[in-house]
Amino acid sequence: MPFREINSKMIEATVAPGQKLFSQRGAMLAYRGEVSFTPNIQGGQGGFASMIGRRVTGEATPLMTVEGSGTVMFGHGGHHIQVINLAGDTLYVEADRLLAFDGTLQQGTMFMGSQGGVMGMVRGQVTGQGLFTTTLKGHGAVAVMAHGGVIELPITPGRDVHVDPQAYVAHHGEVRNKLSTAVGWRDMVGRGSGEAFQLELSGNGAVYVQASEEKL
């Protein structure tokens, strides 16, 4: 795998000729060897149509292409970094949490409404994630940023995991997510426990949760 964790807030990536790497623009801290950084106007891969798609959906983050041969260190804003290895499955993550990912991964944009219908859209609004999210699919590694440490919780059939929408970072695998509400009369009169909305994840995979309820 091309990513090596130096400490909890820095990673080192190895690039070799013919291998591409995408990273958030400006996230490079240091590099060794002959490495070039090209701003990627398209904000990822997939050609012109995908670029339009990302622009329209607000999932466009300034990315850059990293090529050459050498090692590059990445880090951003003092955030904790979690490296996730994908083996053919799909990772769902917010575009602004992406620090770097393998060029071999297929990038896409998903409409929240397509999973969970209207509730999916409500979910996006409630969690402040908007109506769209970024997907990465294939074999390779992804470096994701989070505020505070990240814990990985496995999801297996019959063992649903509920996550605070603000602490949710990413998930992968065959996972269905829906917004569950536990809004009772106590919330209406302002005596809620602060846990009225939760993401209910079921299926087979894993979810990453950060130790904080702050957005990046």
Binding site: L153, A167, G194, Q210, E213
Partner: peptide
Amino acid sequence: NGSMVAYDGRMTFKK
């Protein structure tokens, strides 16, 4: 209040 980040199983929250 509000410090839960995730849970599995069945939980109820009461202020």
